[in-house]
């Protein structure tokens, strides 16, 4: 606070300079983990490109994209949930249930289009139940979705009696998992489109803004006149819907619906989101980070298999990288002075 006009002007410009540098460092701090995971991904890509013969081929890259498509689809939706400081553990079970039911209703002679719509609606309904309990009844989403994990897996096992149900390869719906457009697998195209739409919604729409606000300070958002419960419910509908899409992708790729599909899937999805720099405490999200996180997990799994390393090591390496990433996030990058949670 300076009394004269000239001094005020100088003070402001000096403040602009310091604030610009503060903004730059805050910016780096907020995106530090996204940058870190991008670096890890590049290192992994170079490593596997040189050590595994068939890694850097178009065929393998497409194969990799098709493999991670379900993870990427659900991770996109999970980024919204985690941004609100929520969690959805039920997505793996929803994958199993939607895949199993899809195969069963097709076997009963349902029209594939109708079956697809019904399965997606079921996924959204499961998400609605999750969202209603956690957002409207204020039950911790960890508990709600843990219960739903159990209920949905049980329902899938009951519906299939534990057997896999084959899907007729002549139906058009199989193309969702197995088809290619101009050589690119359909699941990869779908996943990329969904991730891009997710990025657009998160960063450019009022809904995306409210999702961040809800995770940052829900009470402030409520006092700003936003219907926070509706926002909180909607994100779970998104994960439920995305999990149903993933279930359809997996079942049609394998031409079979299995009640054992997607076990541990929820943890893979959450790993991808957290690797990308989205804060488990909410308020900070990076959709680009989520995409990079999902790619990193896929590259590790794919590359290690090509190197003929025992597949059991895949999970060890993925877990190790997660731990390292979080460690780096909380210790190494903290010096950038960004808001820490």
């Amino acid at each position: 606070m300076t009394p004269t006009k000239t001094a005020t002007g100088a003070g402001t410009s000096r403040r602009v300079v310091t604030t610009r540098s503060a903004r730059a460092s805050a910016h780096i701090g907020r995106h530090a983990q996204t940058i870190a995971i991008a670096a890890v991904l590049v290192v992994l890509l170079i490593f596997f490109a040189f050590s595994a013969d068939r890694f850097a081929t178009t065929g393998n890259i497409f194969n990799l994209l098709r493999q991670i498509a379900p993870t990427l689809v659900v991770a996109t939706a999970m980024t919204f949930v985690i941004s609100t400081s929520g969690i959805d553990l039920s997505v793996g079970s929803t994958v199993a249930l939607s895949g199993s039911l899809l195969a069963i209703v097709l076997q009963h002679g349902w029209n594939p289009t109708l079956a697809l719509v019904a399965i997606l609606a079921l996924g959204a309904l499961i998400g609605f139940v999750n969202g209603w309990f956690s957002s409207y009844q204020n039950i911790p989403p960890f508990i709600v979705t843990l219960a739903m994990l159990s209920i949905m897996r049980g329902t899938a096992l009951r519906a299939t009696e534990g057997y896999s149900t084959p899907i007729d390869g002549d139906l058009w719906i199989v193309q969702i998992g197995q088809g290619r457009i101009a050589g690119v697998p359909v699941p990869a195209i779908l996943a990329v489109i969904i991730a891009l739409v997710g990025w657009l919604v998160l960063t450019r729409t009022p809904f995306g803004r409210y999702v961040i606000g809800l995770g940052s300070n829900g009470e402030s958002l409520r006092r700003a006149g936003v219907n926070t419960r509706k926002v909180g419910l909607t994100v779970y509908v998104l994960t439920g819907l995305a999990a149903a899409v993933a279930g359809v992708l997996i079942a049609t790729r394998l031409s079979s619906g299995s009640s054992n599909a997607g076990s541990g899937f929820e943890l893979e999805v959450i790993t991808a989101v957290v690797l990308g720099g989205t804060s488990l405490f909410g308020g900070r999200a990076s959709m680009l980070g989520t995409i990079l996180g999902a790619l990193t997990l896929g590259v590790i799994a794919n590359g290690l298999v090509l190197l003929h390393v025992s597949p059991f090591y895949v999970q060890i390496v993925q877990g190790g990288i997660l731990l390292l990433a979080i460690f780096a996030n909380s210790k190494v990058w903290a010096k950038f002075g960004a808001i820490r949670k």
Binding site: T205, R209, S216, E219, L221, G283
Partner: peptide
Amino acid sequence: YQDLALCDDIDVAGNLFLGREPRRAGGMML
């Protein structure tokens, strides 16, 4: 409000317009 009711992770303009953001594309986009 005494506690200001701001969202720390949202920028200055975003907090200023929180709950009544200017929109375009038929209200779809910020």
